[in-house]
Design a protein around this nucleic acid. Structure first.
Lengths: 208, 208
DNA sequence: AGAGCTTTTGAACTCTCATTCACAGTTTAG
DNA sequence: CTAAACTGTGAATGAGAGTTCAAAAGCTCT
């Protein structure tokens, strides 16, 4: 924010407009999907002319890519910091859950984009998708997997499965919870309390 | 098969051709995604003319829909039967895992289609997607959730979370494992043994 | 105030497809 | 055998959407 004030007025204005376009595009893409949103539509809703959009982004695809990149960076930062902040493996997992749930519930639009994108990314179907996003996601998953690995090495966790499988599993359980919450935001309370998800993973569901 | 022989030769021929188109379309769609496959491409690869395709399917979208429906029915049947076959809740879960893993590893192409579709379906983003598929998926998830519910009622499982969350969680963990397997089919052995996934869910990963 | 620069505009251009249809070839029925 | 019905063809059609660009509007600095 302070840095922004340092930029010349022109430049600041430009960034503000750029952000406005990105925000509108996010809202449209997350609602209707990439292919069902036209540049014309984005132009109309931002009250810019088509040509103007092309002064900010070389193509529709680049606009989309930048959008994803912005959001991916934001998410990656929040969640990675949360993991690092934990002092033992259980606390790390707990922080991760808390951060992910917080970031997502605060920004529902991104949830849809995020889930579709990570899904796509895993298929390598997005031939043209920004490698930087793939890299961010990979880093994050390795970080999460290493928490499990360390927990096993320390003797805290059982050596039941590939740490990466556990990381993917946890990631996907949270996604499942987020999806439930999306369907009926009011009633499901699974998200109020990250511990209920963590408990499943740590203790299992079998009665002793 | 026997029924097929009863149909007039014309009709049989027609069905064979229809299936040929569907097979080719499956291979193209799962490789490149719906929007990146043109009718021309399908026509060329099936060695039919474009017009001919339209004698079998009213539109590109209908072709896609029929394709999904076919596969969804196949999957639904296999997995539901597997669940019903189990005699207690744990056996039901085990059968489900086994069936899902088997069906999917035997038909990699469908994996990609299946996962993207269910993902989409959960978002209600596919306004035009066949309601029959949504219904199948819903039925199946309720069936799976009811296994957890019954297990809780019996006192076999702890009442840790919404049964539907557990169902979604399990579903997603398997998907995660399938994705790992997709990336490197040879090395990952998590799929040889459904028990390793089940063990995580039942006992958790914490050392006692 | 006005010359020279930058920014904005949106109609026109281009390209990609899904879809159609008039024609030709093939099968069936009387 | 032949007329009618059905099937297959692929070039033509038209709609939709991304991209361009020449002209208009706005800005800056002397």
């Amino acid at each position: 924010m302070m840095e922004e004030q340092r930029l010349p007025r022109r430049e600041r204005e430009r960034l503000r407009q750029r952000q406005e376009i990105l925000d509108t595009a996010l809202s449209l893409f997350s609602e209707k999907g990439y292919h069902n949103v036209s540049m014309q539509e984005i132009a109309t809703k931002t009250e810019f002319a088509m040509g103007t959009l092309y002064r900010f982004f070389r193509s529709k695809e680049e606009l989309y890519r930048e959008l994803l990149l912005d959001q991916a960076r934001k998410f990656h930062k929040a969640v990675s910091e949360a993991i690092d902040r934990g002092r033992d493996e259980i606390e790390k997992l707990r922080n991760y859950l808390e951060a992910k749930i917080r970031v997502f519930t605060e920004n529902v639009q991104v949830v849809k984009l995020y889930l579709t994108v990570t899904q796509e990314a895993r298929f390598h179907l997005t031939a043209g998708l920004d490698p930087e996003i793939q890299e961010l996601y990979k880093q994050f998953m390795e970080n999460l997997a290493s928490v499990f690995k360390r927990g096993m090495d320390k003797g805290l966790f059982q050596d039941v499965a590939d740490p990466m499988l556990l990381a993917l599993g946890l990631e996907n359980i949270v996604n499942a919870a987020l999806l439930l919450w999306l369907e009926s935001p009011e009633e499901r309370s699974s998200l109020r309390d990250p511990d209920s998800i963590l408990k499943i993973l740590l203790h299992g569901i079998l009665k002793r």
